[in-house]
């Protein structure tokens, strides 16, 4: 009997200890930026969670990144496009990005300057679309990621491979300095709207593979997109 009470006391104290610990650690509020309806099911938390990194790769990566950003910019968030050299602004508008809250930044491609620029952009902008230079060191990348988490911004990485005009063949798999929370890998299956000399490009079927640290199970989607 006596032993039982003793046991209970220790149990209670442990519970109390746990409770106080839970009080000390902040409640985890997952605040997210809204995304359009058709994008919601692709993302694990049905939105862009602040402080996280999303990678959009493959041959529909840039247009996917733009449509991820559209609703958030319309609702008042600012978007910085860093180091993406050949962004088609008309396409951005058609995806619904609010251009009056969009800034295009062209930093030098060296590791240190690029990371300083991105860090400065993180300070004031909610959303970033970045193209990571090949020569970014892992150290600088980690610093940027820490800053991103503390400033609660969202970074979307797009592949540089399609965009840059000069690129060596071996660099294709190297831009993995950032550990992305969500990876959306796209692959175009087919285009519709064009024929042999008639029509114009209208829709395409894209296979999107969702993976990454925050994704429990890798999933595949087949989506028809207007671009």
């Amino acid at each position: 009997m006596q032993l039982d009470t003793k046991q209970r006391v220790t149990e209670l104290s442990i519970k109390e200890l746990l409770a106080t610990q839970q009080l000390n650690t902040k409640p985890q509020v997952v605040e997210r930026l809204a995304v359009a309806d058709d994008m919601r099911e692709l993302l694990p938390d049905s939105g862009l969670v602040r402080g996280r990194i999303v990678r959009c790769s493959g041959d529909a990566g840039l247009s996917l990144a733009l449509s991820l950003c559209s609703l958030a910019t319309q609702q008042g968030s600012w978007l910085g496009v860093v180091g993406v050299d050949h962004l088609g602004l008309l396409a951005a508008v058609e995806h619904g990005v609010a251009l009056e809250r969009t800034v295009l930044v062209h930093p030098p491609k060296t590791s240190r300057e690029w990371s300083i620029t991105v860090a400065a952009a993180i300070e004031g902008l909610d959303l970033l679309i970045v193209a990571v230079p090949e020569r970014l060191s892992v150290n600088d990348a980690r610093r940027v990621q820490t800053r991103l988490q503390s400033r609660r911004a969202v970074m979307i990485i797009v592949d540089n491979t399609m965009l840059s005009q000069s690129r060596s063949m071996h660099g294709s798999n190297e831009a993995q300095q950032f550990l992305a929370d969500v990876v959306l890998d796209t692959k175009t299956k087919s285009w519709s709207g064009v024929d042999r000399g008639a029509g114009y490009l209208q829709h395409r079927d894209v296979r999107i593979r969702v993976s990454g640290r925050r994704v429990a199970r890798e999933r595949n989607y087949l989506v028809t997109r207007s671009c």
Binding site: V103, L104, I116, L125
Partner: peptide, 19 residues
């Protein structure tokens, strides 16, 4: 955002930050 844009223009020169 306006402050950050000002800071970026300072860092990179005004021609590298565009709208």
């Amino acid at each position: 955002a306006t402050q950050a844009i000002g800071r970026l223009s300072e860092l990179l020169g005004s021609s590298a930050v565009q709208v």
